[in-house]
Design a protein around this nucleic acid. Structure first.
Lengths: 117, 117
DNA sequence: TCCACACATTGACAGCCTTCGATACATCAA
DNA sequence: TTGATGTATCGAAGGCTGTCAATGTGTGGA
């Protein structure tokens, strides 16, 4: 599925109730990109993880400091962090044995502003 | 809603790799509220629906004008709109036969600012 | 009253997501 | 090299999600 290319596609089956409504809708690619960002924060545990990192005094955190507060296993936290990285909400930096995660706050702000622009 | 996240849960089981990291993490209820908002926009089709409504010239749209652009069946669109309403991203107003949806932009902005505050 | 229309709900199915234990990989110390 | 430690990956179980056809509900017109 997911065929609709872009096309505003003003094919209202029955144009009866509202004005033509030639609205601007985000295209498929944009919708998927935005959904990816929001989906990454669509899980309470990932919200906690992201808040931990953004509120970190040092500006970065490693996995070993994240498993405790959220109460999840290390593989699960690693999985969640991967999703946050893929969404562009955090960046990963390997330093020795540890993997440090830093917030990329602009990503969320930009995504949210996609609707108000 | 959106009570500023200020629950300090500094339960680091093993403080070995990083400084104590007395971070502020959002509490459970806040995390669930935020996740609910972001989860509602975690689907490409709901992103499209939300963008259609926010970009609407009249400031509101009915279901019959939404099914066409997203290419989904009427029950599916109705289902997605219900989720957006429950997340507080749009409001529903029944006027005669039609149900009009209006954007509540502040909800998304507030949710996004929960991390930068 | 009856019918047509706009929308919501239900039931069902396929696919995805969250989570864990087990395991593999990478780095550092001895 | 060997062992210990921090992370990532794999495989599986259970639950949740998106989608539709069919049906129900409420409104307005004839």
């Amino acid at each position: 599925m997911t065929t609709l290319p872009v096309t505003i596609d003003a094919t209202s089956p029955q144009a009866s109730c509202c004005p033509p409504a030639a609205d601007a809708m985000v295209d498929d690619a944009t919708a998927q990109d935005l959904a990816k960002v929001f989906k990454a924060l669509g899980d309470p545990n990932r919200v906690k993880l992201f808040s931990l990192i953004t509120a970190s005094a040092s500006g970065e955190m490693c996995v070993c400091d994240l498993t405790g507060p959220v109460g999840l296993s290390q593989p699960t936290v690693s999985h969640h962090m991967k999703l946050l990285v893929e969404a562009g909400l955090v960046t990963r930096e390997q330093r020795g044995k540890w993997a440090y995660y830093q917030p990329a706050i602009g990503t969320l702000a930009n995504a949210a502003q996609a609707f108000t622009a």
